[in-house]
Design a protein around this nucleic acid. Sequence first.
DNA 1: TTGTATGCGTTATCAT
DNA 2: ATGATAACGCATACAA
Lengths: 342, 342
Amino acid sequence: MAVAAGVSKATVSRFLNHRERLLSPEIATRVETAIAALGYSPSPMAQALSRGRSRLIGLIVADITNPYSVAVLRGAEKACQDAGYLVMLFNLGNDFNREREAIDALAGYQVDGFILNTLGRGAGLVDADALHGKPAVLVDSRHAGMHTDFVSLDNRAAMRTACQHLVDGGYRELLYVTEPSKGVSSRRERTTAFGVCMTAHQPKVAGKVFESVVEEGAALDDALLALRTRAIGGRRIADVDAEGNGAAVIAGNAVVTLRVAQAMARLDLQFGRDIGFVGFDDPDWASLIGPGLSTISQPTDEIGRTAAKCLIERLKGLDVAPRQLLLPGELVVRGSSLSVAG
Amino acid sequence: MAVAAGVSKATVSRFLNHRERLLSPEIATRVETAIAALGYSPSPMAQALSRGRSRLIGLIVADITNPYSVAVLRGAEKACQDAGYLVMLFNLGNDFNREREAIDALAGYQVDGFILNTLGRGAGLVDADALHGKPAVLVDSRHAGMHTDFVSLDNRAAMRTACQHLVDGGYRELLYVTEPSKGVSSRRERTTAFGVCMTAHQPKVAGKVFESVVEEGAALDDALLALRTRAIGGRRIADVDAEGNGAAVIAGNAVVTLRVAQAMARLDLQFGRDIGFVGFDDPDWASLIGPGLSTISQPTDEIGRTAAKCLIERLKGLDVAPRQLLLPGELVVRGSSLSVAG
DNA sequence: TTGTATGCGTTATCAT
DNA sequence: ATGATAACGCATACAA
């Protein structure tokens, strides 16, 4: 290109990067016009090859189907774009063993850093130095043996909020329904936090944990029935009016919420009236189920933005100890967790 | 690297690309072991720079928040990965004017082709040759002046199915609720298809179209009330029992479905009993609203896969006239569209 | 069959 | 202040 402007390509490069500093105004404008005439723009790939960095950020997500992940992705991608970075997406499709492969593929394209929204388990477990020396930030799940920046919902505080809200509402039998923790840190943290809350409310409140798996809808049904039976003092459901009672479910995420809602429909039970409910995550359909589902809304967009921001700070040379950014959730009260009547 | 293996780098390159064909077995294994020892893998960027193609596919999506887009993206990304391509994602965040910018950014990284899931309107309207001569495939929305491969739901057939189903169920007053078409081809197609269906069922069935916008919930409420009023013969709603009647709504997509469901809740009307319903798109919460929402389920995954497949065929040199792949939707019958009693 | 040289589009280190 | 020139990591045309 440059030759067509009457200068050397080194000069063009200088114009692009150093502009005013070391270029005579006369020749600067000459390049400028030529650059406009040719509609020229530099090749990021060649720049990357030469510089060693690419202005590319690798984003690995465990499951693009998960709306939570997408919400985070959205925030992160926007922040990256605003900072002049482009996002390369790699979706694991829940095949956790491909995490290593994903990192290598992305690293091949010289991404400057990683945002990892993965579960942190599986065969290809990624340790710190699998990252080819590039900085990374973990979202939502901590990885064993990889101490980098970490951004997530403040699970403990969120769980405390949910429990407190239900206890305040008069609920005395609580069931925490979660996917099996299987080494996923966020699930483990929420479950532990639930335990802590329950002992804190001893002996007024009783809490149980139920691990729900897709295939076993019946088991969930039974758990809900048992919960309700306990709450209404051992009487059979058929014998009880629609009297207020103190049974409530906390769902560990939106997937679980969906399962619980399906179970409730199967059992012909109603949220709020028969069983109280608060769920983690606040999908847009939450207000449409029964009397509306109360939720803990995650600041997904901010989580994504924060993750991107952290990473970009590192890319700009920031060198401090790994940070933990725990963002607060927000309780959204709807009909499913109204105070227990009398 | 190669030097450490005792050969020239040209030989290494040959090993990578031509392998058996033009390499002595003796030196082939020598390279092979060295390649394993060093844990070496070629740099895709350098390859791209040299070859002119990158094994990268640019995927531009109008709004990553849209679950439909994500579902398609998922299918496409998987197909790309399986074919050895990596996806670079660019999210417009509903800022349609950035489409041109997105294409240029992606082209800068030498993507071999584009998958465009955008609305095909806005200032930066992209014509065929904005693509830097690279092939593209359009998903869901046709772009004016860009005739490339096109993959989408068969909107006409899907609408026919929905209408036929409702008419068969005894519904006589149909209201099609859609977002304003604003030059989006899929919306326009569905609306026209609705019109065609209605004239086909003349005079037995009456159809109306309502364009819904977020801000005007009240207008939607009124439209639903009017619909119901017409269906029950002009009598005021308060005077009518829960008798079966022939009013039904068709929602143009999941967003509209959400709005309609909210309106129904506001009006204290029930799907199936008061107003029949079929909606385009089949979100996972459809079965949980009221008696379950009947839907037209799109083969999103297959749409994505097909789009990727089309593009990759082009990349392999296929040169035929632009193709139109219209994939069939599937009617999922739930409680919201049961036959009208009496 | 293999090595050498050149080019891909930049940046950076020299000279000038 | 600007122009050659080498390097970035690979592919390829050509020479051996």
